[in-house]
Structure formats: C-alpha cells, structure tokens
Design a protein around this nucleic acid. Structure first.
Lengths: 68, 68
DNA sequence: CCTTGACGTAAAGGAAACTTTACAATAGAA
DNA sequence: TTCTATTGTAAAGTTTCCTTTACGTCAAGG
C-alpha cells in the first residue's frame, strides 16, 4: 500500500500537526501513515479523503502485499 | 459507517464462507463486517472492492460517527 | 426423520492501529 | 545566537480488528 498523504497535505499547505488536529488523531498517526508504517483504519481513510475532496483511491494506492 | 457487503456478496452468489476464503480472512470477519460490528482495515476494504469490481465508496458508506 | 449448508452468537487470544509522552534535529526568522 | 515551527524517533499502553474454537438455529433434500 502506497500513499500520497504527504503530497496532498503539502498541496493544501498543512503541517502534520494541523492535519492531525483537523482529523482528530495524533501527530504520530499522521507520521506513521506518511512513513508507511501502517495503513489507516477505513474511517480515518474516509476522513482523509474528505479533507482533500478526493476519493480514498486517489490517496491510497493498493498493491498486493507479501504475507509474513 | 454503513456497508452493502451482504448485498454485493449475494449479488455475486457467494456464501460468507466462500467470500472469506477468497479474501483470506475468517468467516467471523465477514459476519462482523456485514453486521456492522466493526469496519474492515483499509487493505481488506480494497480487497473487497476489488472482488466486486467497484470502488470502496460503493460498498462502504461513510457517515460521521458519534464518539464514545 | 437425519444430514448438510448457510448464517448466527460468544469468548479468549493475537496482531494492527492509535495514543501519549519525551526527546532530537533541522531550518528560518527575530 | 536564540526562538519557534516542523519533522522525526522511540517506547509503553489502549483500542480496534481479526482469528480460532465451539456451539445454536433454521431451511432444504435425502
């Protein structure tokens, strides 16, 4: 799973902190998603997409993941 | 968060068991999502949408949730 | 009847997502 | 230089997602 969160965030001139506030999550969560440490929950993915006025599919690019 | 998983599953003539197998998750997971006990992870949401050839937004309908 | 398939519940345990706190590094502005 | 904003790391704890196991119900077919 790739994502373009940092890209969209910068395009909208938001800091990680401001975005986290807006989404009601911690800054750590934003960092973790941007750095691809994990995927957001589906509700959070919806909130993110809504924030930028796009589809979930525009920000999050799904690719088969290798299983552990 | 509403979802139309059961609807899409039936439209494709799949049992919960077959769908679970196809998605590599347990039948409990399918039941829990259909019965709205929780939302799927984003990767699973992608797999589900892919299975039915639609967008995540077609199956999962986001609505502001009341916070505990 | 009895069996089988499909759907449902419950509970305990593990894994993934998210929080809070604390601290470090850099860049730009005063 | 010093201050502030921004991004980053790490660790410990909670909540949500998902698994496994076991069992209950109902309908359809033998």
């Amino acid at each position: 799973m790739k994502n373009r969160l940092a890209e969209y965030r910068k395009k909208h001139a938001l800091s990680q902190d401001k975005l986290a506030d807006h989404l009601n999550v911690s800054r750590q969560t934003i960092i973790s998603i941007e750095k691809n440490r994990y995927s957001p929950s589906l509700p959070l993915a919806f909130e993110i997409a809504k924030t930028f006025g796009v589809l979930i599919e525009d920000i999050f690019i799904y690719e088969e993941e290798e299983e552990s």
